[in-house]
Design a protein around this nucleic acid. Structure first.
Length: 581
RNA sequence: GGUCUGGUAGUUCAGUUGGUUAGAAUAUCGCCCUGUCACGGCGAGGGUCGCGGGUUCGAGUCCCGUCCAGACCGCCA
């Protein structure tokens, strides 16, 4: 028996008991006549006490032990004479009678404590050591709890967990595929799934009715703090449902998760907003609605007054930063520099200070009278003391820029409280998106998304205007998940592929299996998928998903601990029929 | 593909206008210390200043290239 208790469970009620504990030596404090050791495991820390007067031999042994040694100790639970109120086991300690060193340890490259001295790089390289730290373990515990509650909720509703293959077929739509060479079929490749999309649709055709899977997906695209090459989806699909059924079902799931895992009760029904409205008011398809700062259209108030930049702009937009009229020249210059960074790409920024005395001060006073400026303020609903920030340019660009500025101001003004959670369904996404580079439409969601029936008349005349039965769940400016009602009709699916520029032959070669399946009684169906990593990070008020993945990859897609990817040897290459260019 | 920030002791960082032997904290090691829990005191060891080239009497510092890390843009149905 390695242990009778964990390092987190002993309390004064156990005083007098003889116990056996196993764990890691986190820290020892040698006071000369006595030595204290913090013994750590996943459950907590228990202090071991050694005294030269009581047991010189064991005390001498204890003084020789280094950090991260794996110890088994035996001893008596005693009351501390000086208690530590900061930890749950702080009222007791162990008077140790026997130490067994189960394993020694080199001095770790960084301290294994809640507040480590190690930076990101060294911790990534020694991820197994970083994972010993309590705050990191807590994050994986949270993830476990979210996954468990997800299964509970979906299971209760009759969802079936069905596994789908990982070695599948590369398709041209969407993200770049990770590919796997096939030894038995020389010169041919599998692809790893970007999502189990087509398989879950086939399961609907098979009559499984309600499917879910917590499943790895793979996309070979450049990474971000919230994007990993392999990530986990809560993937769901339902048959005989309309969009409304799906939204309410998964609204319920998110509410369940927040309630069970975080003790947070979300809105009883999540607000909904069309894609068009989200773009118009927030310049984003995943608006952070924890705060307002909504866009104000200044076109009619600001154009045609002789200020060339505005006159020539397609769109003049403002946001009203309330009570910010006191911003200094320096602060405004800093904001201007911020929007002019290449990543934002604005040419400049105009401001309007609504002074407390009712006058207006702007950076374009030359072109506008006080009356003109009063009109801006009125359109923006600005009161004395407020500050308008104004950008102009092409509609799409200026919305995007203003969207970034809005989030930046939200950060600066402390309006993005990580303990406030504001879900939002964004609905009525466009079916198609024009791709400037390839000069064709591509599916905004994916090629299996059904158009809205009432927009079907536009599909030949103005396909870009067709809206889809597609929806995203945004929360705090993060896209947590999304889905759609799917096409279940062979002819419509074929029409979609045609719109996307596939020839009949290509469509048949790539997705023939799906269209064939639709010929055998495919039920109406739809679904969605949540990004588990993002969901967990968002629930924890964090932006980077890396901390919530046990063994994440860095921003170049490398695992710096195992040093992957790595070259193959000649023999393997030959066997796979692959040659390096 | 691009933009920005960084790379100096095991670790986290400082290093002034280009100028003597590159510092601090922490970790490690040694000695002292009987109630610590960020223990304390004294002392010691520890450096390819990412790498390559250039400018200069002289480069951690300036220039060019390159590698690595992080954030972002493009990209991510």
């Amino acid at each position: 028996m390695y242990r009778s208790h964990t390092c987190g469970e002993l309390r004064p009620s156990s005083i007098g008991q003889t116990v056996t504990l196993s764990g890691w030596l986190q820290k020892s404090r040698d006071l000369g006549g006595m030595t204290f050791i913090d013994l750590r495991d996943r459950y907590g820390i228990t202090q071991l006490a050694f005294n030269m007067d009581e047991d010189a031999k064991v005390c001498e042994e204890a003084r020789k032990l280094g950090r991260e040694f794996v110890l088994q100790i035996e001893g008596e639970v005693i009351e501390r004479s000086s208690k530590n109120t900061k930890i749950p086991t702080g009222e007791i300690e162990i008077r140790v009678s026997k130490i067994t060193v189960l394993n020694g340890s080199k001095t770790p490259p960084f301290t294994i404590e809640n507040e480590t001295d190690g930076g990101d790089e060294i911790r990534a390289q020694y991820r197994y050591l970083d994972l010993r730290r309590n705050p990191v373990q807590q994050k994986l515990l949270l993830r476990n709890k979210v996954a468990l509650e997800t299964r509970k909720y979906l299971d209760t509703l009759g969802f079936l967990d069905v596994e789908t293959p990982i070695l599948i077929k590369s398709t041209p739509e969407g993200a770049r595929d990770f590919v796997v060479p096939s030894r038995m079929n020389e010169g041919e490749f599998y692809a790893l799934p970007q999502s189990p999309q087509t398989f879950k649709q086939l399961l609907m055709v098979s009559g499984f009715d309600r499917y879910y899977q917590i499943v790895k997906c793979f996309r070979d695209e450049d990474l971000r703090a919230d994007r990993q090459p392999e990530f986990t989806q809560i993937d769901c699909e339902m048959a005989f449902v309309e969009q409304e059924d799906i939204l309410t079902t998964f609204e319920g799931m998110i509410q369940h998760l927040f309630s069970e895992v975080r003790g947070v009760e979300l809105d009883a029904t999540f607000p909904r907003m069309t894609y068009a409205e989200a773009m118009e008011k927030y310049g984003s398809d995943k608006p952070d609605i924890r705060f307002a700062l909504e866009f104000v259209d200044l076109n009619s108030a600001a154009k045609g007054k002789g200020f060339g930049i505005f006159d020539e702009a397609e769109q003049v937009l403002a946001i009203n930063a309330q009570d910010c009229a006191g911003y200094t020249r320096k602060q405004l210059d800093k904001l201007t520099d911020w929007v002019k960074r290449p990543q934002i790409g604005a040419k400049g920024m105009i401001y309007l200070k609504c002074n407390e005395d009712g006058t207006y001060k702007s950076s374009v006073d030359k072109f506008y009278s006080q009356e003109n400026l009063a009109e801006w303020a009125q359109v923006a609903n600005a009161k004395p003391g407020d500050l308008l920030l104004v950008l102009s340019g092409d509609l799409e660009k200026v919305r995007k820029q203003m969207g970034e500025l809005r989030l930046h101001m939200g950060d600066e003004l402390g309006l993005r409280n990580p303990n406030v959670f504001k879900p939002l369904w964004v609905i009525d996404f466009p079916l198609l998106e024009w791709d400037e580079e390839t000069n064709r439409y591509h599916a905004m969601h994916h090629p299996f998304t059904s158009p809205k029936p009432e927009d079907m008349n536009l599909i030949d005349t103005d396909p870009g205007k067709v809206r889809a039965n597609a929806y995203d769940l945004a929360m705090n400016g993060v896209e947590l998940g999304g889905g759609s009602i799917r096409i279940h009709d062979r002819e419509l699916q074929a029409r979609m592929f045609d719109l996307l520029g596939f020839s009949k032959e290509e469509a048949e070669a790539q997705f023939g299996f799906l269209m064939s399946a639709f010929e055998y009684g495919a039920p109406p169906h739809g679904g969605l998928a949540f990004g588990l990593d993002r969901l967990v990070a968002t629930m924890d008020g964090a932006e980077s998903i890396r901390d919530y993945i046990a063994f994440p990859k860095n921003n170049r897609g490398r695992d710096v601990m195992i040093d992957a990817p790595s070259p193959l040897n000649e023999e393997q290459m030959k066997e796979l029929g692959i040659k390096k260019l």
